[in-house]
């Protein structure tokens, strides 16, 4: 129902988003994954009509929204990355104002305020000023404000940054509920791999202004299907040892941190005996050995050579 075609945005010649193609089907839950500065928020700003693209199109049911934004604004709910709330007003007053700018009023508005508060679990705190809320509660009100007009598509821009695990779970649960029971189409932005893995049917991975991979979780993982990840814990690490490892047949990448090593190797390389041998030669003890099924994190590492969060 919503797609972007070769969407690009430059700020004073500097590219923030380049040639991004996304699509969202009705009822889907899609993740947008990427490190800081990848261009996620900029993409969302363009979709939500806050920014005009430098080039490219955004289509809602086949109709370009760039110059006719009325329709998409009606059905889109946007949860901005930063809290966008009046700190000096109560939760209820905030929702009342944000509902009224969607031209809702009276009983209808009242009902949807209470419904939204219920979804985010803050019904009993609605009379309190937002500034008295905890970080997690503010985030939840931030979400509630985007739900008032019962949007068909909900876009969440890193809704869980900087909050406690409990609030985070609550938010993830809320999003899942909206997607599963109310049929809301979700675009969920994060740089937490595990959130996206948990919530989303499909994932787009952005890095450095471009989408570098896309697909269902299984599809993405199949990128790595030709590789094994081996984790080692050693008594000590020696540079020569690492160099030798890298030159071993089948090894593609070696990362070291403290006394731990992560080795990515061609599937079926069966390195174990050689490894033990090598460690022995350098008088290094092998404390722990583990072969891992790859995660999306590994996919990102594979694609960019960097971890998602540095």
């Amino acid at each position: 129902m919503l797609e972007t075609i070769h969407l690009s945005k430059s700020f004073k010649g500097k590219k923030a988003v380049q040639d991004v193609n996304l699509y969202l089907d009705n009822g889907e839950s899609v993740g947008l994954l990427g490190p800081n500065g990848a261009g996620k928020s900029t993409t969302i700003s363009m979709i939500s009509t806050l920014l005009k693209p430098t080039s490219g199109e955004i289509k809602l049911n086949g109709i370009n929204t760039v110059n006719k934004p009325g329709e998409i604004r009606k059905i889109l709910g946007v949860v901005p990355q930063e809290l966008a709330l009046y700190q000096e007003l109560s939760a209820y007053e905030n929702l009342k104002f944000f509902g009224s700018i969607y031209k809702m009023k009276g009983k209808e508005l009242e009902k949807s305020i209470q419904h939204a508060l219920e979804i985010v679990g803050l019904k009993d705190r609605q009379k309190d000023l937002v500034k008295t809320f905890s970080g997690g509660m503010k985030r939840r009100i931030n979400i509630a404000a985007a739900l008032l007009h019962q949007p068909q598509i909900l876009i969440l821009d890193e809704p869980t940054v900087g909050i406690d695990p409990q609030s985070r779970n609550h938010i993830l649960e809320t999003v899942r509920l909206l997607n599963e029971t109310e049929g809301t189409t979700v675009l969920y932005t994060s740089h937490y791999m595990e959130e996206v893995e948990q919530l989303c049917d499909r994932v787009y991975i952005m890095d450095d202004s471009e989408v570098i991979a896309a697909g269902s979780k299984a599809e993405l993982l199949s990128i790595l299907s030709s590789e094994d990840t081996i984790k080692l814990e050693l008594s000590k690490i020696n540079e020569d040892f690492v160099e030798k490892l890298k030159s071993m047949e089948g090894v593609r990448k070696v990362e070291s941190a403290n006394s731990q090593l992560k080795i990515i190797a061609k599937k079926g390389s069966n390195l174990i005996s050689e490894l033990v041998h090598l460690a022995d030669r350098y008088q290094i003890q092998l404390l722990h050995y583990q072969t891992e099924t790859p995660s999306l994190e590994d996919v990102f590492l594979h694609l960019t050579g960097r971890t998602l969060r540095d």
């Binding site: 939500s48 009509t49 806050l50 009325g70 604004r73 009606k74 889109l76 946007v78 901005p80 930063e82 809290l83 966008a84 709330l85 009046y86 700190q87 944000f98 700018i101 969607y102 031209k103 404000a145």
Partner: peptide
Amino acid sequence: EEIRQKVFNRILVTNS
């Protein structure tokens, strides 16, 4: 303060 608190953007994403 409203600009800082980003609430103005919320108004912009509506048809108001």
